[in-house]
Design a binder for these strands. Structure first.
Lengths: 344, 344
DNA sequence: TTGTACGCGTTATCAT
DNA sequence: ATGATAACGCGTACAA
């Protein structure tokens, strides 16, 4: 196997007895190449194990065949799934994935991302929540003509530039699930109010419950920070009161895990006394005791769609294939929710 | 801010009134540039916000300033930490990180990795366990002169090419911890025997216990698959027996989580009846009930060292700074281990 | 349908 | 210490 010698387009051209311009045409799938010529060149390409050099290609065409992944998300599992989904598309189309964690709360974060893009020469970027909610970043990218696709939980951009996880609608499923179990006094530990996802979930939950004739009063909504510690703190508050809700929805599994911990410490049985549900289907949602009823985003599917959109945005000449834009999370029922035993 | 126009080395040269060769020298820190010239050029570089183009640089110098990360590891948290550690070094030195998950059990995996390297033009690769244990991959890389650094749990390469997590020695800590709590009848759920890490941990545990005059008999060692499901299965076996061990060490937190689940289902109290410890300090180790005593690898620190080594391997002209090679995991004590109550 | 010639932004060779 | 000039591998007007 002549792996050692990297053959160039010139080698292919010489070997096939054509000019390198024609080889270039074949590589890039130009239609104006004779059938016979194309086959001959294809054969030589295989024989020589030729792969166009990304650097040279980039230098000449202003394309790097690199995609950037911008995120600032403590959920490693989420990131990992996004990366894997993304790469299934990338590899097929000759793209590579360059990762860029950032700190979106910091002042220079937009500059930092812009800097990353020009440094690395990525052709476009995928932006994960919650960074994807940044209006500033999106405008900056648009202003600099950088192709991008956001993954977010609300409809905050042109549909060519976004894939939406419809969390508002997904909340209907958990609302119906809890109500069908007989719960009427339900509490919600919401996420940080600046996040779209928090608002979508809170409003989706409230609305869905209302449709089922259940009220979610203000005192039953407590804002958390989406962290385990925050879950601990709020759970202590809830459980120290005299009238407990019969069910709790936590904005994510992290906080739900905090609730489980406090309940366990206080001897409160989940789901016997209080039902509990989370959001994410985080890795420990199925491991924890009791295992968590939760809503799972089809993360990998979402990132596949997003990557396809991004590559489409980078290559506008390919006529736009219609792409999905909205994907709904779905309910996973486990041990932490059960029939409400409280009498009316 | 003239962000829009990307200035080139020519702009800098013209503006500074020198040839571009000199600018190039300044960029690359060549010593043979006059003090005054250097300062003038530096000023222009700042003024024009000039950044050398990676593509062009790569084409000319055969360096892409891209680093590859090769792994096949279900533990997303581990990967994420590696990436973050790696990037702290990368960003400072002008490198970017390209990720490449692979399937190291498959036949063409070496070829796939080689392919990735030539496709992406990465200057070198970081290899994570368990892929890092592959002798075939390492030889192939060496044969093709591809710089690489492995992160592994045993001393299986030249110290310039490896960072070792000394798990054998770390096992001494958990052994001492359990014995100091009075445990004498200890079981171990080991990892898949083909993995170095499994062997290191098993032998390390056995030896450490022996030094403490505790025997780890063959029937107390059960081989697992490092998966939650595998933990479930083995735990069912152990707990269905008549004489239970007083402590169990599981090769990772995933399997330990399985043990906790089965114990909970069977009404066996951890740590009251059986102490339990894991390895990794996985995300749920601190969330699960009871929280897990475990061994944590300083993953981020390890990946920082590994990345530095890799960049050093890529640029051999920089005189080798002495680098750490061995880093020991450390014990984290939580709820799942307690005093042995069983009488002698 | 195919080929020629040049340019992309940088590094490297060899002078001076 | 500095500079002219040729690579590097590929894409692309323009020509044929």
């Amino acid at each position: 196997m002549d792996n050692k010698v990297k053959s160039t387009i010139n080698d292919v051209a010489r070997e096939a007895g054509v000019s390198k311009r024609t080889v270039s045409r074949v590589i890039n799938g130009s239609p104006s190449v004779g059938q016979a010529t194309r086959e001959r060149i294809d054969a030589v390409i295989k024989e020589l194990n030729f792969q166009p050099d990304k650097q040279a290609r980039g230098l000449a065409s202003k394309k790097s065949y690199l995609l950037g992944l911008i995120y600032d998300n403590p959920d490693a599992l989420y990131i990992d799934q996004v990366q894997r989904g993304c790469l299934t598309v990338c590899t097929n189309l000759g793209y590579e994935l360059v990762v860029h964690p950032c700190h979106w709360q910091e002042d220079d974060f937009v500059e930092d991302c812009l800097n990353f893009i020009s440094r690395s020469n990525v052709d476009g970027v995928l932006i994960l929540p919650p960074v994807s909610e940044s209006k500033k970043l999106a405008s900056a990218l648009r202003a600099n003509n950088h192709p991008y696709v956001r993954i977010a939980s609300a409809d905050l951009d042109d549909h060519a530039n976004i894939v939406i996880s419809n969390e508002r609608e997904a909340m209907q499923d958990i609302a119906e699930h809890l109500v069908s179990l007989g719960h009427k006094d339900i509490a919600m530990i919401s996420g940080p109010s600046p996040f779209c996802s928090s608002r979508e979930r809170l409003e989706g939950f409230t609305d869905s419950l209302k449709k089922l004739n259940i009220d979610l009063p203000a005192h039953r909504v407590i804002e958390g920070q989406n962290s385990y510690e925050s879950g601990l703190e709020i759970a202590k508050n809830i459980f120290s009161g005299t009238d407990l809700p019969t069910a709790i929805f936590a904005n994510n599994d992290e906080m739900a895990a905090g609730v489980i911990r406090v309940a366990s410490d206080l001897g409160i049985k989940i789901p016997e006394q209080v039902s509990l549900a989370g959001f994410d289907d985080n890795i420990f949602a199925s491991r924890i005791i009791p295992s968590l009823t939760t809503l799972r985003r089809p993360v990998q599917e979402i990132s596949v769609v997003a990557t396809k959109k991004l590559i489409q945005a980078i290559n506008p000449q390919n006529k736009a294939v219609e792409q999905t834009t909205v994907i709904k999370p779905y309910l996973i029922t486990r041990e932490s929710t059960a029939k409400c035993i409280k009498e009316d």
